[in-house]
Amino acid sequence: MNQMTKKKPLSRLPMIAQAGPVSLWMILFVTIPMLFIIFISFMTRGTFGGVEYTPTLTSYQTLADVIYLNVILKSLRVAVVTTVVCLLLGYPFAYYIARKPADVASRLIMLLMIPLWTNSLMRLNAWMLLFQTNGPVNKALLAFGLVDKPVMFLYTDGLVLLGLITNFLPFAVLPMYSSIEKLQDAMLEASADLGAKPSTTFLRVTLPLTFPGIFSAIILTFIPALGTYTITDMLGGGKVLYIGNIIKNQFGTIRNWPLGAALSVLLLLITALLIFLYSRFASIEDMEVM
């Protein structure tokens, strides 16, 4: 008995040291604020801003409006498209980097990150300067006689997608890179030696082994893309509202914090549901990323 009580704290120490800080941080700075948000979502909108502490379900009743379903579908569409494109573009790129010697790879990764240290607004602005009606791209097209009047690139879906990709791709590449890098040449060689075609090796060995990285990539692109609005606003001309815009407006000019809070709760529930569905149906090993 005595021995057991003595031993227990010792074996728990590494766990507390490792999982402790993150748990504490999440509870203090995420759980508590979110509990507060959930609490607010059941309160009344203050006429002059803020919240009146009278319980009501008004905000959730508002959410039943079909408009919010449309908003969510639109936001989901953007998130899916962004994620799929980022994975398709990012995987080969991550693979390319990961197969390089370690020092070259780390430099290539650095090369990928440096542009992101400039302000994102400045980069979006640069895309607009490049593609605007009297911008260099249009001037070049006119000079080569490819078009006879300037093409309206601005505010098209293509440009929005370009903006989204250049913003989210690194978040897809990094986790995939770090898991591909871990692949051992020996395994791929073994597969090849056993007579597997490169495509088979890729599908049966490489892909499953790098799945944790792919999953991280999905999390890091899909979920933030769901709430994004600055890129779509700037490059899309602000003609469409996404769920992120609506929530932002509730906490800003509209001063309807309870509705904003309820929408945030809804967003959380959608994410939780997606993750749940994913973990139910994706019976791939090493799903432990979650």
């Binding site: 999982a19 993150v22 748990s23 999440m26 509870i27 700075f29 995420v30 759980t31 604020p33 979110m34 507060f36 948000i37 607010i40 999390i219 890091l220 979920i223 933030p224 769901l226 709430g227 609005y229 769920i243 992120g244 929530i247 932002k248 906490f251 800003g252 914090w257 904003g260 809070a261 945030s264 967003l267 959380l268 994410t271 939780a272 993750i275 979650m290």
Partner: peptide
């Protein structure tokens, strides 16, 4: 629970956490 909490800051628009904080 902690795992779930980790997704919160990624998914919830920043303004929500910012205001509550």
């Amino acid at each position: 629970f902690i795992n779930l909490m980790l997704y919160v800051p990624i998914v919830v628009p920043e303004i929500v956490l910012a205001v509550s904080m």
